[in-house]
Design a protein around this nucleic acid. Structure first.
Lengths: 186, 186
DNA sequence: ATACGATTTTGACATATATCAAAGGAGAAT
DNA sequence: ATTCTCCTTTGATATATGTCAAAATCGTAT
């Protein structure tokens, strides 16, 4: 999905504002393994993913905790860092070669000021991600591992094939061993 | 915290728009035990809590799952239902006598259209709740029960004293028995 | 094709938390 | 005050999932 296509799904945006917004984005490519966001650094850019797979993870004493996947049609950054302009706590890494459209935070906020209707865009996008997170939260917390896996494969079938098992397990809040056993059962 | 005080924390809002917005809210009182949102019904109102304690919960086969507490200074509704205008899945119930400022969805959206800067208000509020949920999600998922309890008592000390143990346990994703044992340990 | 490192699978055992059950306590209504 | 109901505590046991370890498989570079 291209940025253009994504933006046109927001029908309230006048075409001229859509154009101005699009021009503020710059296409960037990253090879597999690249790090887009680093802990300790403050996120200055926001990405729209046109192609490829990303993950966000936290590093703890003994393991990495993947808490998020992003792919075609999604927006990616450390929301916490980007919004609060304080150092990120997590890493965002390319699982595959990546093609994104990137916008600088300063440019985005300048556009917000110039075109107040863009706040509506930001609001609706944030609302969407909020609801997604809420659904995931409820599920994650109150269903068993096998059910969570089933929902995940329904919601993100492509990630299933493209992300390593250990990473998916971590996203589901279980160990790689447990996920391997869940897969074996069926 | 009054609605007026809350709104003035958003410094970008011109006083006249703040006034108009405030006038769209109506004060309402609910006795303890009242139900603000019912599963199957679509949320038409959004509340700002001036006094009292609320909880949101899901009903499953054999138990109630509390996933949210709201109190002074918070906004409350079924976000999912309010935003998508489809029937709510959860119940929102007063744990204490409640004083809120209520706004009708139609009125709010009329104001959004009239004053685009209000989208910024909506955006910033949603961003705030998104970040809170994200923090909670990470914690909930990757920390042990006792640690989750510790964070909860730090974040919401007042709820600790005001909500029944079983409800807090459910919020933390554990049983009442387990929470009782965690408390006994310390 | 071969070899190396990384990922996945499988097994044995450990542990946090759930479940079931019963006994205490606290608050509300009579 | 007394009863009744609901909430909390405590105990015994069950279970899902974690941990540790080793074997099997896969992918990439040589």
């Amino acid at each position: 999905m291209t940025l253009h296509h994504y933006l046109t799904t927001f029908t309230f945006l006048p075409p001229d504002i859509t154009s101005v917004l699009k021009e503020a984005f710059v296409k960037k490519d990253f090879p597999k393994g690249s790090i887009l966001i680093q802990p300790g650094k403050t996120a200055k850019e926001l990405y729209f993913i046109e192609k490829g797979l990303l993950r966000g993870y936290y590093e703890t004493e003994n393991k990495e905790i993947t808490y998020w996947f992003g792919y075609e049609g999604h927006i990616s950054t450390s929301y916490y860092s980007f919004l609060s302009q304080t150092p990120a706590l997590e890493t965002i890494e390319c699982i595959e070669n990546l093609e994104v459209q990137a916008i600088q935070r300063v440019d985005l906020y300048r556009l917000y000021d110039q075109y107040p209707i863009l706040h509506r865009l930001g609001k609706e996008i944030t609302e969407h991600y909020y609801l997604q997170l809420e659904e995931r939260f409820i599920h994650q917390h109150f269903k068993e591992a096998a059910e969570r896996y089933a929902l995940f494969s329904k919601r993100h079938p492509k990630v299933m094939q493209r992300a390593p098992l250990g990473t998916i397990a971590s996203y589901l809040g279980i160990t790689a061993e447990t996920l391997s056993r869940i897969r074996a059962k069926k």
